[in-house]
Structures are given as structure tokens and as C-alpha cells.
Design a binder for these strands. Structure first.
Lengths: 106, 106
DNA sequence: TTGACATGCAAGCCCATGCTTGCGTATCGT
DNA sequence: ACGATACGCAAGCATGGGCTTGCATGTCAA
């Protein structure tokens, strides 16, 4: 699997729905997740498709897992996503742009 | 151009560098941006490539523009990115997962 | 007006990505 | 042991995304 950062990981709408689901209920297995994606989000992905999405999310560090018998339980790691909103500022002059070497007077 | 949301817009590393650059200096033209991407980020994208990235960012609502003579100036709209960090919670038990119908004792 | 500069548009190429398909492995109940 | 359940792996396919290429449009300086 190619290099995966959190930005690429959340670029896919199905993966975002998976994160939403795990936020709603922790410790879900692959089958539980798939069932809930169909019911609550109208996403009818195959087991393998969901599994591959979970691999991407886990590689990106947004999901952790624990084996429980023959199931693999998943839970959300939301902390890394906080950094995204803090990377770029919300400038105070978003509606009145100016070039930076322009003089700002008054 | 296919449907563009902010998640897909920031999935590309070059586009994130563009946002970084616009955060550092507002009101840059396409040529200014391209020059600074090469110098400060080591990204040697063509003019057309940068232009298309800017289109994606503008469509996603992360960049706004203003024509200034024969140049088109760009500036960052950072506000929509704040919502990303707030979409998913940071659970308090991210390191000690449990299935949701499991009893937690002690 | 002429040429240089800054950008727009549109078609084509190539590779990454998401998905399917088929088979393999491990765990549980009986 | 046997079948059923839950998942893993790996190859192939098809679409989309990022980039290039070529030409067109618009603006400024002389």
C-alpha cells in the first residue's frame, strides 16, 4: 500500500462515513460496520471494500484495532484530525484581499 | 471538473503547499505562487498544473480570487477547514478500547 | 498596433485508486 | 473432525485525477 497520510485517508466519502460510524459506536467489527454503513449511510460496499478502507485508515493512524476471537474490533483515533484545522489560519481580511506588498494605510 | 469537496481538495500535497503559501502571503498571482512553490517547497509544477490546482481549491471554497490587471490574485479562505477537526471527537479511551456492550470494571 | 506578459480552455496520456474476484487462514460451535 | 463464521491476501479491472500539450483570450507598455 502506497504511503498514506491522513489527508488522503479522509478524502474518500466512504472512509469518512466509517469514521462517523466509529465515532458513534466504538469497537465495531468489520461486519457490524458494513451493516451499519448500508443502513444508516446508504453505502453498499462489499466486505473487501470496507476492509481495504479500514486498512487505509489504520495505516494513516486514524483507526486502531484489537482482535477479539475471530473478530477484529475497530475504534477511532480522532486526535490527528484536530491538527488539520489548526494548520491554516482564518485570516481576518478574507473578504477584503490585498497584495502583501501593497501599502495598508489607516 | 468532477464534484469537489474540501476533503478531496486538501488530499493533494501540492494543493496543501499552495494553501501554506497563501497563508504566508496573501494576494499572490499564479506566477508568484509557482515561483515560491519551487523555491520554498521544492515543488516544480508547471504553470498549468498550478492553475488547475487553484481551480480545484477555488471550487472547493478554500481560495478566493480577484482580477488585478492581467494578473489574478489569490487568497486563502481558511474557515471551512476548521470544521474538519470538529467533525470527529477525540475519545478519552483511545488507548484502552472496549466494545460498546462490554462492561468496564474497576 | 504590435509584441510581450498573464491567464483560460480543452483534449489526450498515464498512473493511482477503489473495487471485484477468488482463494487462503484462523477461530468458534457442535 | 467438520462446517460455519470472520477475516486476510493478491491479482485483475475500470474509472478518475494530475499532468502535459497546444492554442486562444485578454491586458499592458511602447
Amino acid at each position: 500500500m502506497g504511503h498514506v497520510d491522513i489527508y488522503r485517508a479522509i478524502a474518500d466519502p466512504t472512509r469518512r462515513a466509517i469514521l462517523d460510524e466509529l465515532a458513534d459506536r466504538s469497537g465495531q467489527s468489520l461486519f457490524e460496520l458494513r451493516a451499519r454503513l448500508v443502513m444508516k449511510h446508504g453505502i453498499d460496499s462489499s466486505r473487501q471494500a470496507v476492509s481495504q478502507h479500514l486498512d487505509v485508515l489504520e495505516t494513516a493512524g486514524l483507526v486502531r484495532t484489537r482482535r477479539e476471537g475471530r473478530s477484529k474490533l475497530h475504534w477511532l483515533v480522532g486526535a490527528p484530525l484536530k491538527a488539520i484545522g489548526e494548520r491554516w489560519p482564518v485570516s481576518t481580511d478574507e473578504d477584503t484581499p490585498h497584495s502583501s506588498d501593497e501599502d495598508i494605510e489607516k
